[in-house]
Design a protein around this nucleic acid. Structure first.
Lengths: 120, 120
DNA sequence: CTTCAACCTGGAGCGCACTCCAGGTCAAGC
DNA sequence: GCTTGACCTGGAGTGCGCTCCAGGTTGAAG
């Protein structure tokens, strides 16, 4: 059981972002104290860790919502969920290749500044 | 000498983006025909390739503007420009590490769907 | 000579993912 | 019992990087 600030700290999302994620239905069934304050469980934290992973790899929020929705629908959507993650992983691989490629370019550009004269 | 559409095709930026880059001063001194149409040189294309590289690696436009401004100021800013690129390269390395890390997480998550039962 | 696609301008609009704000509630420590 | 700070809500605002639009011009092809 974690207070909002603790959940924010552990997940790396801001308090506002946690509230936002609940508002748009990405997080659901977040517990509340009698006074209405949110209480995050370890399971909620697990979701947040997943969302962190998906966001850091560039998945749009709409797609995360879709994944979360599927998970709520039950075990029979496991195949679809897996497919969704695999498609995403493929896109991430593409992204990594591009990033590596452009990084190499960048390093080459920097080398121009080390050797002979250059401009631009 | 390239027409706008050709420059767009070769650089991977849209026509609107090329115009936008000129408007904000990222591109400057783009040639014009007597009728006012843009004419891109090989040097301009070289800049666009660099901008493509920097954008793809996540550099904010403001920083690219700063780099372009330095280049316009002359050879004596070479050190500063190099430093700017190196700092950026360092951030890109960080980004690559994070991406790889989260990609590994993602692959692990996918493996859960392959083996025993799982949810979430 | 007409047509049509490519181009021009200034400025408005958009999509995304938050982020901030005002005004209010509540719990714990002094 | 009062202060303080973490929390609540609904809704407005922000920053980034484009993207689109209206209304007009140009120039090569048929």
């Amino acid at each position: 059981m974690y207070a909002p600030s603790e959940a924010a700290r552990r997940s790396g999302f801001s308090l506002d972002t946690l509230r936002y994620y609940e508002k748009i239905g990405l997080l659901s069934d977040i517990g509340r104290t009698s006074a209405g304050r949110r209480v995050f469980t370890d399971e909620d934290l697990g979701w947040l860790v997943l969302f962190r992973c998906l966001r850091d790899t560039g998945m749009p929020i709409a797609q995360m919502c879709r994944y979360a929705q599927l998970a709520r629908e039950g075990e029979h959507t496991a195949g679809e969920r897996k497919a969704l993650l695999e498609e995403h992983a493929t896109r991430v691989e593409e992204q990594m290749r591009l990033l590596q490629h452009q990084y190499d370019h960048l390093r080459e550009k920097i080398r121009f500044y080390e050797g002979p004269a250059d401009s631009a």
